[in-house]
Nucleic acid binder design. Structure first.
Lengths: 229, 229
DNA sequence: GGATATCCTTGACTTAAGTCAAACCGGCAT
DNA sequence: ATGCCGGTTTGACTTAAGTCAAGGATATCC
């Protein structure tokens, strides 16, 4: 997919006139990363932000002991690394490609120039950041107020919503990555999946496939109205 | 303080021409809340956002069992409740006045109209949201990757930084509120403060006053390089 | 200024989740 | 096939932090 098509298909740039999309295309720099490659590190100085053309990227924090907390996994058409563009400060987290990934890089100064002349672009970006704040709010709530089974239940429901309420879910990531999203470790996640299976809430065939069998119970778990025994 | 002076003193509106500040003053609605009064609830439909003229407001999540996680405590000149302005969705958290508080309320549609005509306002708001994302990132890191003593240590250093590195700290909030900021409960916080005092890291005279005695050790604690015994 | 309510601390106990270590499993390459 | 190698599961154990309950300290109000 060429640059202009990627831009045209990106939610951040919806509602912009064709000529602004052309201006955007003019400032981007294409980049590619291999699976496992670091895109930026916490503390790095930022020169701009990224949009994913193809591939997947995880943005995460890591503790001195090596425990990792994933903040977000980004896919096609999603922007990431925007925070330093507007704060002028270094990146507050790490970003790493989860697969072969190609990105469009938008240099800070050029992009801010466009924001100044195109209010819709500013409002779209405000919307993106606001959605992200909302997600972070939910993550904070999960980490602070829910136990791991509740977080997992909420995550399964989130996946289900993304596929229009389907009961057949594709994890798309390894269990280890999922544990890191939920703020726990693989062993704990594994035990909880086993429990949920034994209690008939889910069943799991393939490695990365889960079927919701008792949605009601999973909702109660996610809302803290029920616990695993 | 009258509306125009509050606006002129608000970081969000810095760098705006006088006439835009006047436009802003024209759209605001003044409101006052008593200590303990709810300003908005999670799930409420939003009609705009707020700036604090005087007083203090906590924004928080609460679990079914009543445990509370404070996301942010806002003071004079700070905006809050902006997320739904740009997402169009309901408030993702609760807001309550911690003291007698007066606010300026900016209706959504009027404000967005001004954002469309004044790019500096858009960029200032992008900066505010980005700073908040950064803070949330740090909170997520604390909750997921640090133990409570480390979170407390990080908070003490944060307070110290705010007063130019002073070792004499004023908590400004109750221990219960502090516990809620740190994602724990008053009992646990109390025990940890006792331990830190016994190990000579801090001393505590008045209720809401703490003196840093061993900054080095507190920094190590915050970075996970050291633990309380 | 004494009574009442709220906040804070302490103790004994429980528990969710982490650590460490070992076994298991399914692909992939040799 | 055979053997290696992530990723995953399971078991035994440890531990940080929560719960429950009581007592102490402060602040606040009439």
């Amino acid at each position: 997919m060429d640059t202009e098509n990627v831009i045209a298909a990106t939610p951040l740039f919806q509602g912009l006139e064709k000529r602004y999309q052309k201006d955007l295309a003019r400032i981007v720099i294409k980049q590619t990363y291999r699976r496992g490659e670091m895109i930026f590190a916490e503390g790095d100085q930022s020169k701009g932000f990224y949009i994913i053309a193809t591939g997947r990227v995880k943005v995460f924090k890591i503790s001195p002991e090596g425990k990792e907390q994933i903040l977000h996994i980004f896919g096609q058409g999603e922007p990431f690394g925007e925070v330093p563009v507007f704060t002028g400060q270094p990146f507050p987290a790490y970003a790493e490609a989860l697969a072969e990934t190609s990105t469009l890089f938008f240099p800070r100064d050029d992009f801010i120039g466009l924001v100044r002349t195109e209010p819709s672009l500013a409002l779209n970006m405000l919307s993106v950041l606001s959605m992200r704040l909302k997600r972070f709010t939910a993550l904070i709530e999960d980490l602070s107020l829910k136990e791991v089974p509740g977080r997992l239940a909420a995550y399964l429901l989130y996946l289900s919503d993304r596929s229009n309420g389907a009961n057949e879910l594709d994890l798309e990531i390894s269990k280890g990555q999922l544990a890191s999203i939920l703020g726990t470790i693989p062993e704990t996640l594994s035990r909880i999946l086993t429990k949920m299976t034994k209690e008939g809430l889910i069943s799991s065939d393939g490695k990365r496939h889960i079927r919701i069998k008792d949605r009601m119970a999973i909702e109660q778990l996610a809302n803290g109205e029920k616990r695993l025994t």
